[in-house]
């Protein structure tokens, strides 16, 4: 949920996550956009159990997702990356192989 208390955000941008369009704002981290959209499950572990982010500061690697709109595809830590309009993201909670 995005707080509405005393805040003006950047320009609206739209990103695609696992094929769905998600609203975000310029300057937001990708992780913040995912959490605001209720997208907490970012991958499955070896047993197929769901995982989400843990540290939100770049140390745990739980928030790794793939950025599909660049060549070659990059794996990025969602908590350190700022959203860009038209960004295409695949989480690891569904298989793209």
């Amino acid at each position: 949920m995005r707080s509405q208390a005393d805040i003006t955000r950047g320009m609206p941008v739209t990103i695609e996550v696992d094929g769905q369009m998600i609203d975000s704002f310029s300057g937001e981290t990708l992780l913040a956009a995912l959490v605001a959209a209720g997208h907490m499950r970012l991958r499955n572990d070896q047993e197929g159990q769901p995982r989400g982010f843990w540290c939100n500061m770049g140390t745990c690697s739980e928030c790794f997702v793939s950025r599909l709109d660049v060549t070659p595809v990059r794996r990025i830590r969602a908590c350190l990356i700022t959203v860009e309009d038209g960004m295409r993201i695949a989480t690891r909670s569904i298989s793209y192989d």
């Binding site: 907490m40 499950r41 970012l42 572990d45 159990q49 769901p50 995982r51 989400g52 982010f53 843990w54 540290c55 939100n56 500061m57 908590c79």
Partner: peptide
């Protein structure tokens, strides 16, 4: 490890 469990600082 469940989504939604996180560090309080995070």
């Amino acid at each position: 490890t469940l989504p939604g469990a996180m560090g309080a600082g995070g």
